[in-house]
C-alpha cells in the first residue's frame, strides 16, 4: 500500500435550514485502503458520502479526490468514482444486465468495451445466470451484488459504498467482504459507511467514528482499540460495603499490570496489560480484601468500547436523530 493520499477532506460542513448534519469534518483517505465511516443512523455518514460523490454541496470546507475539488470539478470526479447506493436504488422493472447497459451509456463507454466489461462483471459477482431476469425477483443479496457490479462498471479509482451489507444474510455479507478485499488487492481505494461494528473491525483498514456530525476518532481498528489502554476485566461485586470496594480498588491499583480502574454500577472496570498474570492476582486480591465476587468477565478491547469511550454511548443505542 502506497501512502499517496486519495481523498482529502478539510473542515467540511453541511447545514440544512436548522439542522447541522456535518460539522467541521476533516480526514484523509490513503490510496488503496478500505476506509470506513462508522456511526449510528443520522450521524452524518451519508451526508459526508453524498458530498464526496458530488450529489450534495457542502455549506463549508473543501473535499478533493486525487486533487480534484468535488464542487468545482464535479464532472471530473464523477469520471473517477463508482457509487454503490443502498439496495432500494434498483429499478425493479429492469433486468440486471439492463442496469449495467444503462450505466455503460451514462459513462459513455464504447459498445464493445461495455459488453465485455458487463459480461465479466456479471461473472465476478456471480450474477450471470440471473442477468436477464427483472430485478423485482432478486433477493437482497443479489440486488447488492448488482449494485456492486454497477459501481465497478466505470472501472473507478475510488469506490463509494453506502451501508454495503445492511440487512444481508451472513453468507451474502461474507461474499461482499470478499469482493471488497479483492478490489483492494487490485489497488482500488474504497470508502464505505457502516453502522456495523464487526464490519468496521474486520473489513476496514482505517475508520472514522462519526457521531452527531463530528469525527470523534480516526485510526485503524487495532490502534483505536489499543488506545483504550489494555484488555478489560469486569468485576461484578456482591453487596459489599462501599469502603470495602474502595479498599479493593486501592489494592488493585498497586498491582504492577493494572493500568486503570473505573467504578461501574455493578462493580469495577479494570484495564490490564498481561491478563495471564493479572487475572489470578485480581482474584487473589478480591478474596484477601473480603469482597464478594458475583462475576468476572475478561475481554480483549472491542470496537464498541472504542465507540463508547469516544461518544459516551454504545453504537447499539440508536438516538432518535433526524436522518438526512
Amino acid at each position: 500500500m502506497s501512502d499517496a493520499v486519495a481523498i482529502e477532506v478539510k473542515g467540511l460542513g453541511k447545514t440544512y435550514d436548522t439542522v447541522t448534519a456535518v460539522k467541521d469534518l476533516s480526514l484523509s483517505v490513503i490510496q488503496g485502503e478500505i476506509f470506513g465511516l462508522l456511526g449510528p443512523n443520522g450521524a452524518g455518514k451519508s451526508t459526508t458520502l453524498r458530498i464526496l460523490i458530488t450529489t450534495l454541496s457542502p455549506t463549508s470546507g473543501t473535499a478533493t479526490i486525487f486533487g480534484h475539488d468535488v464542487v468545482k470539478e464535479a464532472d471530473t470526479i464523477r469520471r473517477l468514482i463508482g457509487y454503490v447506493p443502498q439496495e432500494r436504488a434498483i429499478d425493479r422493472f429492469l433486468t440486471g444486465r439492463e442496469h449495467l447497459l444503462l450505466l455503460a451509456d451514462l459513462y459513455h463507454l464504447p459498445k464493445n468495451e461495455a459488453l465485455t466489461r458487463i459480461a465479466s462483471l456479471l461473472k465476478l459477482v456471480d450474477l450471470d445466470e440471473h442477468a436477464d431476469r427483472v430485478a423485482k425477483g432478486y433477493s437482497g443479496g443479489m440486488k447488492r451484488k448488482l449494485d456492486i457490479a454497477c459501481g465497478l462498471l466505470p472501472n473507478p479509482k475510488v469506490l463509494f459504498l453506502d451501508e454495503p451489507t445492511l440487512g444481508l444474510d451472513v453468507q451474502s455479507r461474507l461474499n461482499i467482504w470478499q469482493y471488497l478485499r479483492q478490489l483492494r488487492e487490485q489497488g482500488m481505494t474504497i470508502v464505505m459507511t457502516t453502522n456495523y461494528l464487526d464490519e468496521a473491525d474486520q473489513l476496514c483498514d482505517r475508520i472514522a467514528i462519526i457521531d452527531r456530525g463530528e469525527i470523534r476518532a480516526i485510526g485503524s481498528p487495532k490502534d483505536l482499540k489499543a488506545s483504550l489502554g489494555g484488555d478489560g476485566v469486569w468485576l461484578t461485586l456482591g453487596d459489599s460495603e462501599p469502603q470495602v470496594v474502595e479498599t479493593l480498588s486501592t489494592a488493585l491499583k498497586a498491582l504492577p499490570f493494572v493500568r486503570a480502574i473505573r467504578p461501574t454500577p455493578q462493580g469495577l472496570d479494570i484495564r490490564v496489560d498481561a491478563p495471564e498474570k493479572a487475572l489470578p492476582a485480581i482474584l487473589e486480591t478480591t478474596n484477601r480484601v473480603g469482597c464478594r465476587l458475583d462475576g468476572i468477565e475478561y475481554h480483549r478491547p472491542r470496537l464498541d468500547d472504542v465507540f463508547v469511550a469516544h461518544t459516551g454511548r454504545s453504537l447499539t443505542d440508536q438516538p432518535p436523530e433526524p436522518t438526512t
Binding site: I53, Y83, A89, I90
Partner: peptide, 13 residues
C-alpha cells in the same frame, strides 16, 4: 425517493 436518481447523478452525465 428510492435513490435511483442519486445513482444517476453520481455518473458523469
Amino acid at each position: 425517493e428510492n435513490g435511483f436518481l442519486e445513482r444517476l447523478m453520481a455518473t458523469p452525465i
